[in-house]
């Protein structure tokens, strides 16, 4: 039996139909057409599917789609302001903090959550916070440079 879900995604009200066993990740990609959120492992280990649910950073592969009812979801598609990239996105480009790009949406969503919680992270704090976002390409160093530079820049702008 299909479940009808009404939720808010990146500030807009969205409705979709899903099977009760489907995850929020499945729903975003297959029913809502938001394919920016990626599936790496499907088991909560890689962070490629990171989104926020009512402000809390979670793995969307570990949330059942019906749980989205009445919630407010934030995905990678909501990070840029229309055509204008977010500072975090610009810094990832500038520091070449991506190669294949599968981990990148999750890392950017997680970085935004990190900087909202802690605008001034040390390198160690950033590495711990992002430990659940695996990248098999870059070796992490460029990612951490981009994150710390974004924090610096956002502080300057605030």
């Amino acid at each position: 039996m299909k479940t009808h879900v009404t939720t808010t995604i990146n500030g807009e009200e969205v409705e979709f139909l899903c099977e009760p066993h489907e995850t929020l990740l499945d729903a975003l990609r297959n029913h809502v057409g938001l394919t920016g959120t990626k599936e790496g492992c499907g088991s909560g280990d890689c962070g490629a599917c990171s989104v926020t649910v009512d402000g809390e950073l979670v793995c969307s592969c570990l949330v059942l789609a019906p749980e989205a009812e009445g919630k407010s979801i934030g995905t990678i598609e909501g990070i840029a302001d229309h055509d204008k990239l977010h500072v975090i996105q610009e810094k990832f480009l500038e520091h070449a903090a991506l190669q294949c790009g599968i981990c990148t949406p999750g890392l950017i969503v997680s970085t935004k959550a990190l900087l909202e919680e802690n605008p001034n992270p040390t390198e160690e704090e950033a590495r711990y916070y992002l430990a659940g976002n695996l990248c098999r390409c870059t070796g992490y160093d460029k990612i951490i440079r981009a994150v710390l530079d974004a924090a610096e820049t956002m502080k300057g702008a605030a």
Binding site: E56, L57, S110, A113
Partner: peptide, 9 residues
């Protein structure tokens, strides 16, 4: 317990 994301749940 787990990563930041896992702790969210």
């Amino acid at each position: 317990i787990g990563s930041t994301q896992v702790q969210g749940r």
